[in-house]
Design a protein around this nucleic acid. Sequence first.
DNA 1: CAACTAGTTTCATATTGTGGAAAAATGAGA
DNA 2: TCTCATTTTTCCACAATATGAAACTAGTTG
Lengths: 266, 266
Amino acid sequence: MDKDDESDRQSGGIQSLDAALKLLSAMGGYLRPMSLSELARDCGMPPSKVHRYLTSFLNAGLVVQAGKSGKYDLGEGAIALGLAALARHDFVNRASDALPELCLESGLTVLLSVWGTHGATVVRWERAATPTVTSMGLGTILPLLNSATGRAFLTWAPPAPLQAIREAELRAARKASSTVNSQLRTEQDIERMTETFRMRGFSSVEGRFIPGLVAIAAPILDWQGRAQCVITLIGTDPAVTEPGSDAVRKLIGFCEKLSFSPIITG
Amino acid sequence: MDKDDESDRQSGGIQSLDAALKLLSAMGGYLRPMSLSELARDCGMPPSKVHRYLTSFLNAGLVVQAGKSGKYDLGEGAIALGLAALARHDFVNRASDALPELCLESGLTVLLSVWGTHGATVVRWERAATPTVTSMGLGTILPLLNSATGRAFLTWAPPAPLQAIREAELRAARKASSTVNSQLRTEQDIERMTETFRMRGFSSVEGRFIPGLVAIAAPILDWQGRAQCVITLIGTDPAVTEPGSDAVRKLIGFCEKLSFSPIITG
DNA sequence: CAACTAGTTTCATATTGTGGAAAAATGAGA
DNA sequence: TCTCATTTTTCCACAATATGAAACTAGTTG
């Protein structure tokens, strides 16, 4: 039949659907109601075809016929669809809805953090049944280098916004060798650490930020693999930080489920 | 052939398109990526059919395949379509044009939200010069009871579409008394609150949804007095929520100008 | 390793969408 | 009010196209 299929011929789809969607997106392109013949002309389809498609869109509520002029325009259904799609990108909300569940399953205190202007910021948290003494609350800002949460951002977030704080903390770490100091002194140290985290799929810290407590953290990634937010589990048992531990598996499972790209790229 | 066509047989449309759109709107109903078989089950279609439809949606960009899990979700195309459809709404359109101005004048971060399938959805926002820590972006869904934005819908939007979420949040609020709890437990509490808001002409919240931040919100009303969208100002100074404050006056003035019926019916 | 389960591809078939043309509907001018 | 011109909608015979079952892969679990 067609010697050489014209343009896009992606395999597998449905021709009439493809055409219909082309029409639909064409309608998205204008910002006023369009008459049938205008649409037909612009899409290079016979009017009868366009009319049949429009009827289906009409039934589905994606398109409405404006006024009695009979012109066609995008309708409520299209708005609803778009808002639903927008909501998918709302990682924080989807994650916080599921937070209590993770808390119950793991039996640990759970934090949900995002990257704010001043660093990793706790925006949601769920306290475990066995209350662990923490001074943590909503709005707490966690250190970048010495908290599991911060380290997760360090590993999976785009570096640019972190730069300032990263440098500041590194400088502070070098000077104050008196403190319970991290082994993190140089850029190389950091590189090595994040590489490990990236492989394992989670970051961790042991009693550094809060003595006596351990924490593990994993990112929720958008479709470009950037951390949108970070989930942290806090406990007392050092075994928690072991790769393959129950808590680790639950944490990564949780984050993987909410992420749009795989956390462990093996 | 068919003596009397079973159920919906709206005239004129295209069967495969109707089925495809049914699938599409089903996808809008969930707020997480769905697997092929889940979709097939829920729509009562054979998997192969669903797969073919999805391929077309994929080619059109309406749907993306999330991560390596292979699950399907609404994509950029759906967002574009929805925003295009939103632009038809005069209210949204006129409001978003004026948004930067309000942001400048008030010096606060400004949100423009509409009511979507899953709740109050941010569709436009303007960041203040003094950056405030927020986890907010396009598509963020705000809680109904514990955000200024949500409360504005609660006060000025028709109650029917809100009902489901209202009940869900109320139930959650009663259970989780452990959390930083709202004083909102009963229908009466809500009634009292909305009455106050209605008198003042704006809703407010202090550090509930986002600790350390305060917010005020007012509706843009159509000619029937229903909220078409909601404008929210976010700041850090608690004085902002005071009736008669500079921010409040600017907010209400802004909304009043764009509304088709008076906000304060005194 | 075998027995599942989930996702994708293939294929023969007739169901379904197609485009042209006819029929309504709409609108403008006289 | 009547006619002409344009746009929208309906009709129809034909074959192109979507269909569902089953085959084929890939990944998982006991």
